[in-house]
Amino acid sequence: MANTHKRLKGRCPTINTFYTVTLCCDSRKPLFVNYLNARLIARELALFSKSNSLNTICYVIMPVHIHWLLQLNSDSNLSNLIRNLKILQLINLIKITELTERYGNQIIMTTK
């Protein structure tokens, strides 16, 4: 992204501050039209919030992006948190896609 360093200059996340984050799919692919993908992302957001000292206030999963309102509970680096979440989501989306391609609709019945 052009001029990212300028936008990030002087930014320092603080405890108990609210942040709104938008996570976009690569090439605007509608990954979250698929119910399993959207459900997986919702579960990941909940688990990630519990394990990373932040509160998820609310989120909206759209077909090509996610809007996420969160509150930091520690002096964690917001950029690193977002990067880690995106990595986890990507890994799990790849796994669920491979399983769905391999077993078809049966995966719907086995995932919880």
Rank of each mutant, 00 (worst) to 15 (best):
M1S: 13
A2N: 14
N3W: 06
T4H: 14
T4Y: 11
K6Q: 11
R7M: 07
R7E: 09
R7C: 12
R7P: 04
C12T: 11
P13W: 03
P13L: 06
P13Y: 08
T14D: 01
T14W: 03
I15E: 10
T17V: 10
F18E: 11
T20G: 05
T22P: 00
L23T: 05
D26F: 05
R28T: 00
F32I: 02
V33L: 12
V33P: 00
N34C: 10
L36M: 13
A38E: 11
A38G: 14
F48M: 06
S49T: 05
S49P: 05
K50M: 11
S51H: 10
N52Y: 06
L54N: 02
Y59T: 03
Y59G: 04
I61T: 06
I61S: 02
I61W: 01
P63C: 07
H65R: 01
H65E: 00
L69I: 06
L70R: 01
Q71F: 02
N77S: 13
L78W: 04
S79D: 10
N80C: 08
L81Y: 05
L88I: 04
L88K: 07
Q89N: 11
I91M: 09
L99N: 11
T100L: 06
T100S: 12
T100H: 08
E101Q: 11
E101R: 14
E101N: 15
G104P: 09
N105T: 13
I108T: 13
M109P: 00
T110D: 04
T110I: 09
T111A: 08
